[in-house]
Design a protein around this nucleic acid. Structure first.
Lengths: 226, 226
DNA sequence: CGGGGCGTTGACATTGGTCAAAATATGTGG
DNA sequence: CCACATATTTTGACCAATGTCAACGCCCCG
């Protein structure tokens, strides 16, 4: 299926937004859209061949699986985000849909070619990759130092920020994009510990839970920040 | 001090290696070399103004400090590595020399201008930043999941690999670039735990310690990998 | 010779993991 | 819409791994 940039929900936020119309049409010709449902795999670690994609809607997780089969979430991808390997000969991590998702997928060589041709695209991706790098380091800082309490609190705030339209102030009411198990995998904890911390925060009056995924921030100041 | 690329030890590995001689001379004109000794700060978190640098020799650490004053090492930088912010208006992390180091430093705007002018430079930095991103995720995977034993073992192997000339096989004998405290900060452990794990590995015959920093890998297969 | 930094070791307390079971949601077929 | 089956989450009891505190040893440097 070829791409229809005209109706793309992220057309002015994604990396390709820096291209002019003619360039974008050209790029669109070498890409295809793909829809994934919850749990479907976009890329599998070890898979040979370079490929990459821009997320139009939904959410993805980037994960690594260690020898014992335990999964670690390395990053979340939100709409307009970019994933994949333009250069490497194989995929280093798994990329899996957290919910119904829609993407533009490109082969590595085709996209590498576009980068050669459109210098602005390379610059845009450079900025984006630097942002990803800082996000990764933020997660590293969150998980490395702190207690389980601080990690869960930090993850809540980070997700409240991601759920808000205005990037500076966190949303008051939002839905967690992750299950307890996924949250645990992201923070290097167990399901039980995550559950206990949420219970504790609710008991302390910092949050209120609505169903499995709903969170209302009642008093963020009560969350034990790192 | 202006730059002397002719004698640069990383002239064909650093990002600027993709430039031709005329371009590199031009870039050299807007940069200056700087020498740091152990513990000196190159960039401080929060510092306003964008700046970046290529490491010519020595080693750096990129760190974040949490509210309690505890330091977390987010990344190590080896020669030919690139650090800093070309785009952001302030520095997000501290960058500190681990030992005597020599760098090429550029102001953010000057370097951003070079990126505009030399598309190949943007591409080279994109690759490099992606590598940094994967390195960061590798550290995330290392620290997130595993036991203290696995973390220290993983760090040892990672440093043995970094110390080796051939990137595939780890060096047998090398010096840790970090003190016990820094190793602990990088792995999210305490000094005491790191020390205990090293003692355990030596008792099990996996390694031998020589002085404070020296490590000889006797039987890497005995290290409990994740 | 004395002092300070760094590393090691030991005793003990605490956090968070493990195992098990109950409670709550979610889905499915009738 | 209900009843049942399944998956997810919560809770509790227990225990091991690791952090904390304290003491000691080693080495470098004055």
């Amino acid at each position: 299926m070829s791409l229809s940039c005209a109706t793309c929900p992220v057309r002015d936020r994604a990396a390709c937004a820096v291209l002019d119309e003619a360039e974008r049409d050209e790029l669109a010709r070498v890409g295809r859209t793909r829809k994934l449902s919850k749990g479907e795999t976009l890329f599998a670690a070890g898979e040979s061949g370079a490929a990459c994609a821009t997320l139009k809607s939904g959410a993805l997780k980037i994960t690594a699986t260690d020898i014992d089969g335990r999964e670690r979430i390395l990053s979340l991808v939100h709409p307009s985000g970019f994933v994949g390997e333009m250069f490497a000969p194989y995929m280093r991590h798994d990329v899996v849909a957290l919910g119904e998702s829609e993407l533009c997928v490109f082969s590595g060589p085709a996209f590498a070619d576009a980068i050669e041709r459109y210098p602005r695209l390379a610059q845009a991706l450079l900025r984006r990759t630097q942002e990803d790098l800082f996000a990764s380091r933020e997660l590293l800082a969150l998980t490395g130092n702190s207690s389980a309490e601080q990690r869960v609190a930090g993850a809540l705030l980070s997700m409240a920020r991601a759920a808000s339209d205005s990037p500076c102030h966190p949303a008051t009411r939002f839905d967690l994009p992750l299950s307890r198990g996924e949250l645990a995998d992201m923070l290097g904890l167990t399901i039980e510990t995550v559950s206990r911390m949420l219970t504790r925060f609710e008991r302390d009056g910092a949050i209120r839970r609505e169903g499995k995924r709903g969170i209302e921030l009642i008093d963020p100041a009560l969350l034990p920040l790192s």
